[in-house]
Simulated scan of single mutants.
Amino acid sequence: MAYNLTVSPDFAPDHISGWYFFNTWLQRQLDVGVHLELYDCFEKQRSDIRDNKIDMIYANPYDASMLVRELGFKAIARPQERPDETVIAVSAESTISSVEELQAGITVATTDDPDVHTMGMIMLEPADLDGSNVTTKEVDTYVIVAKNLLNGNADVGFFLKDAYDELSDLIKGQMKVLVSSQISVVHHSLLVGPTMQEFIPRLEERLFSMHEDEKGKGVLQSMNLEEWEPMTEEETEFMIDLIDTLVIE
């Protein structure tokens, strides 16, 4: 039987090859067939998840609630010291230097990354901005968010901090950061669905020693990760509760 692994669509395109390397590593460790299925958007991915077409996922924190509480997935690992933070940026030529200076009527460039968009909107609240007085322009990638700022088609951009940091120096040099979140307990996680949970003990053993092996370390580097660390049920539930609270607010 072959299983399906997928990755949250917000991962950096530069690391596509890294996930293919990880998929090959995973098959060798578990001695089973695993197919890597990548998606361009969250909507299609969520549809396939609900249709039971996905057995393991490196998921964004927003989707953890659905995966764990509705579909029986179990979070087992997260990348060490890689919390998900949101950056709000503007063009370097903008006269705006703080969120509080932003005015109603601005255009916000964002992706369909739900946790980043939610946090970005919350971070606009000090300027009394919300969905009723800003225009949202949804684009496919963070590179396109940046392009919209640089060509004047948006006033503000929301970025996953990791994605912002990985933009070229040329692009980042033409933008300035107004604010970055500092939540620290929200992060992407590796979750295993009901069909693969028999492999969890072996998977945990191999994942948490992956950085100690030369080949495993090379795979991690290709994914821009240092090492995996365990994620407890309590930590998972806390993160889900926090995200659910932010969304409700």
Results as ranks from 00 to 15, higher is better:
L203W: 08
L191W: 00
L190N: 01
L150C: 07
S180H: 01
S180G: 04
G157M: 00
K176M: 14
L149P: 04
F199G: 10
F159C: 05
L203Q: 11
L178V: 12
R206K: 15
S181D: 00
Q197W: 04
I183D: 08
H187T: 06
L160Q: 11
L167N: 10
E166D: 00
T195L: 05
M175H: 13
H187L: 00
Q182G: 07
D155M: 14
Y164A: 07
K176A: 15
N153I: 02
E205Y: 09
L149C: 05
N148F: 01
I183M: 07
N153S: 14
R202L: 15
M196C: 14
M175S: 15
S189M: 05
I200P: 09
L150M: 14
G193Q: 01
Q182I: 05
N151H: 06
Q182N: 12
G157W: 09
H188V: 00
E204G: 03
N153Y: 11
G173V: 06
V177F: 12
N151M: 12
S180R: 08
E198I: 15
S168F: 00
V177P: 11
L160D: 11
G173L: 05
Q182H: 09
A163P: 07
V156A: 11
R206I: 12
Q182K: 07
L160K: 05
Y164N: 03
L170N: 04
L150A: 06
D162A: 14
L149V: 08
Q197H: 04
L170F: 04
L150I: 15
K161V: 03
G173K: 07
L149D: 10
D169L: 02
P201M: 04
